[in-house]
Protein backbone atom coordinates (compact mmCIF):
# COMPACT_ATOMS: atom_id res chain seq x y z
CA UNK A 1 0.00 0.00 0.00
CA UNK A 2 3.03 2.24 0.57
CA UNK A 3 1.11 4.50 2.91
CA UNK A 4 3.05 7.14 4.78
CA UNK A 5 2.58 8.31 8.33
CA UNK A 6 4.53 10.80 10.45
CA UNK A 7 8.09 9.66 11.03
CA UNK A 8 8.13 10.90 14.63
CA UNK A 9 5.91 8.00 15.69
CA UNK A 10 7.83 5.09 17.15
CA UNK A 11 5.99 1.80 16.85
CA UNK A 12 6.46 -0.76 19.61
CA UNK A 13 5.03 -4.17 18.80
CA UNK A 14 3.27 -6.30 21.40
CA UNK A 15 1.57 -9.67 20.92
CA UNK A 16 -1.75 -8.21 22.10
CA UNK A 17 -2.70 -4.80 23.49
CA UNK A 18 -3.56 -6.69 26.68
CA UNK A 19 0.21 -6.82 27.25
CA UNK A 20 0.39 -3.03 27.46
CA UNK A 21 0.55 -2.01 31.08
CA UNK A 22 -0.20 1.20 32.97
CA UNK A 23 3.50 1.35 33.76
CA UNK A 24 4.53 1.19 30.08
CA UNK A 25 2.38 4.23 29.36
CA UNK A 26 3.52 6.14 32.45
CA UNK A 27 7.17 5.33 31.74
CA UNK A 28 6.79 6.68 28.20
CA UNK A 29 5.44 9.98 29.56
CA UNK A 30 8.04 10.02 32.34
CA UNK A 31 10.83 9.57 29.80
CA UNK A 32 9.69 12.53 27.78
CA UNK A 33 7.28 11.22 25.15
CA UNK A 34 4.95 14.01 24.01
CA UNK A 35 2.13 11.50 23.60
CA UNK A 36 1.51 7.78 23.51
CA UNK A 37 -1.31 5.82 21.96
CA UNK A 38 -2.31 2.21 21.84
CA UNK A 39 -3.60 0.70 18.59
CA UNK A 40 -5.62 -2.38 19.48
CA UNK A 41 -7.90 -4.74 17.60
CA UNK A 42 -11.54 -3.86 17.10
CA UNK A 43 -13.61 -4.37 20.22
CA UNK A 44 -15.12 -7.84 20.20
CA UNK A 45 -12.39 -9.12 17.88
CA UNK A 46 -9.49 -9.58 20.30
CA UNK A 47 -7.67 -12.84 19.51
CA UNK A 48 -7.28 -13.28 23.26
CA UNK A 49 -10.93 -12.29 23.90
CA UNK A 50 -10.59 -9.21 26.12
CA UNK A 51 -7.05 -7.85 25.84
CA UNK A 52 -8.13 -4.65 24.10
CA UNK A 53 -11.04 -4.04 26.53
CA UNK A 54 -8.71 -4.41 29.53
CA UNK A 55 -6.15 -2.07 28.04
CA UNK A 56 -8.78 0.57 27.27
CA UNK A 57 -9.38 0.67 31.04
CA UNK A 58 -5.63 0.97 31.68
CA UNK A 59 -5.42 3.84 29.18
CA UNK A 60 -8.30 5.56 30.98
CA UNK A 61 -6.47 5.06 34.29
CA UNK A 62 -3.37 6.78 32.89
CA UNK A 63 -5.54 9.62 31.55
CA UNK A 64 -6.91 10.12 35.08
CA UNK A 65 -3.38 10.14 36.54
CA UNK A 66 -2.29 12.78 34.02
CA UNK A 67 -5.39 14.85 34.72
CA UNK A 68 -4.60 14.73 38.44
CA UNK A 69 -1.06 15.92 37.77
CA UNK A 70 -2.29 18.73 35.51
CA UNK A 71 -1.09 17.29 32.17
CA UNK A 72 -3.47 17.11 29.19
CA UNK A 73 -5.03 13.58 29.28
CA UNK A 74 -5.34 13.70 25.47
CA UNK A 75 -1.63 12.91 25.33
CA UNK A 76 -2.63 9.29 25.95
CA UNK A 77 -5.18 7.58 23.72
CA UNK A 78 -6.49 4.24 22.55
CA UNK A 79 -7.67 3.39 19.04
CA UNK A 80 -9.28 0.23 17.71
CA UNK A 81 -8.67 -1.05 14.21
CA UNK A 82 -8.03 -4.37 12.51
CA UNK A 83 -4.78 -5.48 10.93
CA UNK A 84 -6.44 -5.12 7.53
CA UNK A 85 -7.07 -1.39 8.08
CA UNK A 86 -3.76 0.07 6.92
CA UNK A 87 -5.38 3.26 5.68
CA UNK A 88 -6.97 3.84 9.08
CA UNK A 89 -3.61 3.16 10.79
CA UNK A 90 -1.95 5.93 8.79
CA UNK A 91 -4.94 8.21 9.38
CA UNK A 92 -4.82 7.65 13.17
CA UNK A 93 -1.07 8.34 13.16
CA UNK A 94 -1.66 11.66 11.43
CA UNK A 95 -4.59 12.53 13.74
CA UNK A 96 -2.53 11.83 16.84
CA UNK A 97 0.48 13.69 15.45
CA UNK A 98 -1.68 16.77 14.75
CA UNK A 99 -3.34 16.58 18.16
CA UNK A 100 -0.03 16.36 20.02
CA UNK A 101 1.56 19.10 17.92
CA UNK A 102 -1.40 21.33 18.81
CA UNK A 103 -0.85 20.58 22.51
CA UNK A 104 2.86 21.39 22.22
CA UNK A 105 5.85 19.62 23.78
CA UNK A 106 5.39 17.64 26.98
CA UNK A 107 5.82 19.59 30.22
CA UNK A 108 7.67 16.55 31.57
CA UNK A 109 11.30 17.21 30.80
CA UNK A 110 14.27 15.90 32.66
CA UNK A 111 16.67 18.64 33.70
CA UNK A 112 19.61 17.28 31.73
CA UNK A 113 17.45 17.05 28.59
CA UNK A 114 16.36 20.70 28.80
Amino acid sequence: MRLSYPSNIKVIQVPCTGRVDILHLLNAIENGADGVYVAGCLEGECHYLTGNIKTRKKVNYVKRVLQEIGIEPERVAMFNLSSAMGLRFAEIAREMDEKIKALGPTPVRKKEAA
Partner: peptide, 21 residues
Protein backbone atom coordinates in the same frame (compact mmCIF):
# COMPACT_ATOMS: atom_id res chain seq x y z
CA UNK B 1 4.97 -4.32 43.50
CA UNK B 2 3.05 -2.82 40.58
CA UNK B 3 1.24 -0.13 42.55
CA UNK B 4 4.51 1.01 44.13
CA UNK B 5 6.04 1.49 40.66
CA UNK B 6 2.94 3.28 39.36
CA UNK B 7 2.95 5.71 42.29
CA UNK B 8 6.69 6.30 41.89
CA UNK B 9 6.30 7.03 38.17
CA UNK B 10 3.30 9.34 38.73
CA UNK B 11 5.14 11.29 41.45
CA UNK B 12 8.24 11.63 39.28
CA UNK B 13 6.16 12.89 36.35
CA UNK B 14 4.42 15.43 38.58
CA UNK B 15 7.67 16.69 40.05
CA UNK B 16 9.42 16.84 36.66
CA UNK B 17 6.52 18.92 35.40
CA UNK B 18 7.10 21.34 38.28
CA UNK B 19 10.83 21.33 37.44
CA UNK B 20 11.48 20.09 40.95
CA UNK B 21 12.81 16.62 40.32
Amino acid sequence: VKEVEILASALRIARQKEENE
